[in-house]
Amino acid sequence: MSATPRSVILFESVTAAFMAEKVLKAEGIAYKIIPVPRYLSSECGVCVRIDEADAARARAVLEGRVAVADILPLRHEGP
């Protein structure tokens, strides 16, 4: 189990989440697409998990390219 603090990027649509994946991949930011944790209110069923340390950079590279609903710290170790 990694103790690295994580964040999740939330989107309004599934399509936006996968558009964001393309951007993050191209920018070399490590990510994983996961189902939205139940405690978070999200508009779509999947979100993108990243290291919290990359959150500011992720926000910057997605700016103007993919609409982000929110970027929030992930509270627990999962999925």
Partner: peptide, 22 residues
């Protein structure tokens, strides 16, 4: 089912649709 479920196969299906859209 693309993107609906969040598991690896759902993610892969959604990726194909996103690539097609692009």
């Amino acid at each position: 089912n693309p993107g609906r479920s969040g598991h690896r196969l759902s993610v892969e299906a959604a990726r194909a649709i996103t690539e097609a859209r692009c």
